[in-house]
Nucleic acid binder design. Structure first.
Lengths: 113, 113
DNA sequence: TGGCTATTTTGCTATATTGCCAAATAAGAA
DNA sequence: TTCTTATTTGGCAATATAGCAAAATAGCCA
């Protein structure tokens, strides 16, 4: 039986899956601005520190971030800043969808603000 | 209580999540080459047609693909081909990780083929 | 109409993810 | 050493996802 979906797709999907969570996406963007320790990120995210730690571990396992211990804290930073280039395209998708919905609404005679 | 993670991140994460599955990633790449109907994709993927249909519905709901009925078949095509630009960066991440692992192995005196 | 083809939906089970709490770990300061 | 801070881990419940098979739906053609 032929293997149709190659391991290559698994590897790529893992990275996209790691990015596919609002909190992790937020963290990625934050780390794009500057490195941060768990404590700081927890403050920004607003959920339990263990939750943030687990999100960071997902990002680390997928190879998207690196960590470095300095003093009493562990600082995380983005491994490949190019992942932020995705956002532009994603915004294009979102905009396209929004416009599509607007057109549908207008065709139905619904007035939008 | 301040809302820390904005809806914007939810929307973006949804698109990344939709891409974060090996089969769906395969389908996206296939649709990048040319539009395809469910039948053709099912053949290529090698799993049940209902499974492929569900994956396509995920991609459609996230706005990544469009469908058009022609004759008895429904043809899917990529909405925003730019999503394929991600792959280059993802490969960079994967390559970086692979090299990191190789270095670790070499430091441990493990010989690689 | 009935049969055929293409696709989607539903029902189901197995598995994975999320997020919180509490406990464990690590390391610096007193 | 004990106290404190920073982070990770384990346990657990709620929720979401994946994939198959069967049933339902839609549209074409004789």
């Amino acid at each position: 039986m032929e293997q149709k979906i190659h391991p290559q797709y698994e590897a790529r999907a893992n990275i996209l899956k790691a990015m596919g969570h609002p909190t992790r996406l937020f963290i990625i963007e934050e780390l794009h601005k500057s490195e941060r320790c768990v404590n700081e990120l927890t403050e920004m995210v607003g959920s339990d520190v263990s939750t943030v730690s687990k999100h960071l571990s997902v990002l680390k396992n997928s190879g998207l971030v690196l960590d470095e211990k300095r003093g009493t804290s562990i600082y995380y930073r983005l491994c490949c800043p190019c992942v932020l280039d995705f956002i532009g395209c994603i915004e294009t998708v979102l905009k396209t969808n929004a416009e599509k919905q607007m057109n549908i609404a207008q065709c139905c005679g619904i007035k939008l603000k």
